[in-house]
Design a protein around this nucleic acid. Structure first.
Lengths: 192, 192
DNA sequence: ACAACTCGTTCACTTAAGTGAAGAAAGAGG
DNA sequence: CCTCTTTCTTCACTTAAGTGAACGAGTTGT
């Protein structure tokens, strides 16, 4: 599991053995059961969640309905909005599958960043990468129909369709579960 | 016009007179006529555009149809995707109104960042702020209907509805101009 | 002043998504 | 193994968005 982490980091910066050990000494690894709510609406946290194995999601509850807006799988992470601006969270963060997460908080970040300035560099690279990726996703979402979005998802994240419940996928695509069913039927009719 | 810029910067960092003069010496200010295409699909640039006065937009042309995905008005800016990863641009950047822009490029950024490391700090703050804001916008878009999105826009950016052509607004809301017309009629019927 | 264009609205019609209900299928727990 | 629950699909019906066409208002250019 540690290898997965260090492998990921090595894409951005190079770590010495000493630095690796410092990281490991922070006790970042957490095993989380499917269904666990990591952060609830109205709560506050300064934790960051990074997925080493498994899947977590961000969702809202609006008029009693769950609306999923994001999935994070292997080597993706969330910094909840409330961790940045110290306000109660507007959304939930939940565990879709049994997962192994890297949970860090501000204190740790400050500590690590002080010891190893390269970490700062990595964070900046990551956040730029993320910003660009998110803008692309947003543009794609805006410029396509639900059906196109679904076909797109099949191309870009085929794993999600297998591992995530349909009703969560539906709201991720901006529609109701019934519409997703219909849409799938429509597509397989065209093909077959 | 310079005051507007320095006022904005002062929210993040404090500049000396010398630093201000260095900035001014770079000749960043540009006057741009309504309708001007700053960046075309397929083209490449390493310019950043920051709006001091006026309005610019990002749009795609898909199957011969314009799809506007973003508007930038006073004190907002774009760094086109192609400026980051040196690929041809997937979208257009155009001028909605006669505008005064601050146009900078990578060379300038490097130069300024070398001279004044605080600029680095400001850029990081800006990009974090932007990332958070964009995520909120995306979540909001996903979790609401076209009508809700329009009502929301009235609350959050009432100026846009006045200064931007309806057909551009429509695609920004993810619908066709005809649907926006209908939607507006529906709303004013409810109110009156 | 006139023609050409752009823009917003309206209409009739089509297509797809929302809604509420019901039932089949798959999983979880005892 | 059976029960309870969650998840997915299907159906009939409603509502809203897409489509293609037409019209009037406002602009631009000559």
């Amino acid at each position: 599991m540690q290898d997965i982490l260090f492998n990921f980091i090595s894409k951005y910066i190079t770590l010495t053995e000493e630095e690796k050990n410092t990281l490991l000494s922070l006790n970042l690894f957490h095993s989380v059961k499917k269904g666990t709510v990591l952060l609830a609406q109205g709560q506050s946290t300064n934790n960051n969640y990074f997925v080493l194995k498994g899947c977590i999601r961000v969702y809202y509850i609006i008029d009693g309905e769950e609306k999923t807006t994001a999935f994070y799988t292997e080597l993706e992470g969330v910094t909840p909005h409330c961790a940045i601006n110290k306000t109660p969270s507007e959304y939930y963060v939940g565990c879709v599958e049994d997962s192994i997460l890297l949970v860090s908080n501000d204190d740790m970040s400050v500590e690590v960043n002080n010891k190893f300035p390269k970490f700062d560099t990595m964070c900046r690279m990551l956040s730029e990468e993320l910003l660009a990726k998110q803008r692309m996703d947003f543009d794609e979402f805006k410029t396509s129909s639900p059906e196109q979005r679904y076909l797109n998802l099949i191309q870009k994240r085929p794993d999600l369709i297998q591992r995530v419940p349909q009703h969560q996928l539906a709201s991720y695509l901006g529609i109701k579960p019934q519409s997703l069913s219909r849409l799938r039927a429509r597509i397989s009719e065209k093909k077959g």
